[in-house]
């Protein structure tokens, strides 16, 4: 599948944004956040900022962005519609969470409930995003049991490094969160390695003989293509660059997205330049996850290209 910049930004930035909201809501619900009046509202604003940036970016790849509101209507059947609904539904409780924190304080029941509701909806949003891909039967690299858990793990990891960085910048140290980010980075790395091993051993979904209904002839070979230039299907789904550079790009993604942030989180947890280390970890994770997401698209093969012998 041809990676579209807007969709890479959408899935990566909303992972950071909703991941951060999920962490904030959960920690506040458990009473683990320091009762600093400004810290939480600023963090929520940053989380919603990341999410909004991703959502706005995603509308750029639409043929008709001005009709985007129509995408909220088909939540009964469409994961894309559900994602839109959940993404919007997270905003009111998140804003309420920040407001109540400011008005009633960190310990108030209303604040904690709003936090937990925002956290749950943030998770639901990421899950809906993952299901857009996981539900597509023609793409074997997406339609498998890895996709949904991976998206959730990556969002938890993104939120953890981002929160660790904000915390360290604000309070000067973030031992607990740095450790959490370290653990999340290693879990995310494990998940990605397992995913790559899985897609490398997958078999193609169908044979050309089955795609053409010619199973009774045994083998089927492509002879002539219908057209000598690329059509929409080949441009959109016949992307082949990644398959050529997959090994190198996977290494780059693994190092930037997970290994380097893990190392920097470890440094921060030892109280060495925590603000610098966690900020660098966040930037590295952002770039690395964009590469990882690029590969997620570029390495995905669409069954329809079998008609072209691709």
């Amino acid at each position: 599948m041809t990676p579209a910049g807007s969709v890479l930004l959408l899935t990566t930035l909303t992972g950071f944004g909703y991941g951060l909201i999920a962490w904030l809501g959960t920690l506040a619900g458990l009473g683990f956040l320091p009762a600093a009046p400004f810290f939480l509202p600023v963090c929520v604003a940053i989380g919603l900022g990341f999410s909004s940036a991703g959502l706005v970016a995603s509308t750029l790849h639409l043929g008709h962005p001005e009709r985007a509101w129509r995408a909220f209507s088909q939540w009964r059947s469409s994961w894309l519609s559900r994602e839109g609904v959940a993404a919007m539904a997270t905003f009111p409780p998140a804003v309420a969470f920040a407001g109540l924190w400011w008005l009633l304080g960190a310990g108030a029941v209303a604040t904690r409930v709003a936090g937990v509701v925002a956290a749950v909806l943030a998770f639901v949003t990421v899950f809906c995003t993952s299901m857009i891909y996981a539900s597509l039967k023609p793409i074997r690299q997406w339609h498998n049991p890895h996709t949904a858990p991976d998206y959730l793990i990556f969002a938890v990891f993104s939120g953890a490094v981002l929160l660790a960085a904000l915390w360290a910048i604000w309070f000067g140290a973030a031992k607990g969160l740095a450790v959490a980010a370290l653990v999340a980075a290693l879990a995310a790395l494990g998940a990605k390695l397992a995913y790559w091993r899985f897609i490398d051993t997958q078999k193609p979904l169908v044979s050309l003989a089955s795609a053409t209904g010619l199973l009774s002839f045994g083998t089927v070979q492509p002879l002539d293509r219908p057209h000598f230039t690329e059509n929409y299907v080949l441009r959109e789904m016949g992307y082949q660059i990644a398959r050529k550079h997959a090994v190198k790009l996977r290494r780059i993604a693994a190092v930037l997205a997970f290994l380097l942030p893990a190392l920097l989180a470890l440094v921060a947890s030892e109280r060495v330049l925590p603000a610098v280390a966690t900020t660098a970890a966040t930037l590295s994770a952002l770039v690395g996850l964009l590469v990882e997401r690029w590969l997620f698209f570029a390495e995905a093969t669409h069954v329809s290209t079998i008609y072209y012998g691709v």
Binding site: S78, L136, K137, P138, S304
Partner: peptide, 17 residues
């Protein structure tokens, strides 16, 4: 139609352009 292209990704036969 908002032109999100998702339907074309969902068609295994490459029928939508």
């Amino acid at each position: 139609c908002i032109g999100c292209k998702l339907c074309s990704w969902a068609c295994p036969y490459g029928a939508r352009e």
